[in-house]
Simulated scan of single mutants.
Amino acid sequence: MSSYFEKQQKRRLISSYFSVVLSIALVLFLLGLLGIVLLNAKKVSDHFKEQVVVTIYLKENAKDIEVKQLEKSLAMSDYVKSTEYVSKEQAAEFMKAETGEDFMDFVGYNPLQNSIDVHLKADYVTSEHLETVSAEALNKKFVDEVSYDNDLVNLMNDNVKKISFWVLIISALFTVIAVLLINSSLRLSVYSKRFTIKTMQMVGATKHFIRKPFIWKSIRLGIVGATLALIGMAVVLYYLNQTFPELQLLAKPILVILLFAFIFALGIIITWISTHFATQRFLNLRTDELYY
């Protein structure tokens, strides 16, 4: 009978530890993912901004040397990331691939123009800079027209500001929720040992002596939970880096290491503080109050 009772107690203890570790791991994992989003938010927004194309259409009589000089001057500009010359033949092939039909069969000739596609650096993708680039290009006599989607640029910049604001708010809120969830899990774990705590206190054990094993046990659980969270974060980060290599999520490994270190330290600190206050609460209760 005694052996059966001990087995039941051991199973309950293991189940309790497992639930605490799982809750710590899940909360820290989600918090870590949010940290990854925060670290790469600007990089992601910059990537999409740099997809905006400024197309400079050239007149039919534009000379090769003039076009090459324009390309070179654009490439050397501080605000330009890359340029690409697109001949009207290439443009026609692209339209044919897009529509699935050869429009020149109906028209009889190629009405498209030679052009230069310009990608600006993310910090310069604003209406003001685009207008400046457009005005400078139109000053060239061999430039016929400059085209870009100004509405898309304004919408993108507005959305980036809104998203950045809400990500910060959600991050702060989620951090508070993470602390409260881990704290609740650990308090329940300590609650199951409240009579043991009071018994030790009644036989003369000091508060520090009673708290010590509980704190060390919680720290070990925090380390296990944080380790599981870091493994999950590493898997997700590897997958995202393989799927979206253009984002270069691992371009700054020091920041990634600091984030991992922060999540690991947070797992230890939260479990330590939560267990300290949880045990302190039961140490301060009277014996009859333990039943409520």
Results as ranks from 00 to 15, higher is better:
N61G: 07
N40K: 13
N61K: 14
I24V: 10
A62H: 08
L28R: 06
V37Q: 04
K42R: 12
N61C: 01
Y57W: 10
I36T: 08
K42C: 01
L39P: 02
G35M: 02
V37W: 05
V53G: 00
L28V: 05
K43P: 00
D64R: 15
V44Y: 02
Q51N: 11
V53N: 10
D46Y: 10
K42Y: 07
V54S: 09
A25H: 05
F48K: 04
V44C: 01
I24M: 02
A41P: 03
V44F: 12
Q51M: 13
F29D: 04
L34V: 00
S45D: 00
E50H: 08
K59T: 10
L26I: 15
L38Y: 11
I56V: 14
V53P: 00
L58F: 03
V27W: 04
T55I: 11
L28W: 03
V37E: 01
N40L: 04
K42G: 09
L39K: 03
V54P: 03
A25W: 07
Y57V: 08
Q51W: 03
I56A: 02
V54A: 12
I36F: 09
N61E: 15
L34I: 00
A62E: 06
L30E: 04
T55C: 05
L58K: 05
A25V: 03
V27N: 08
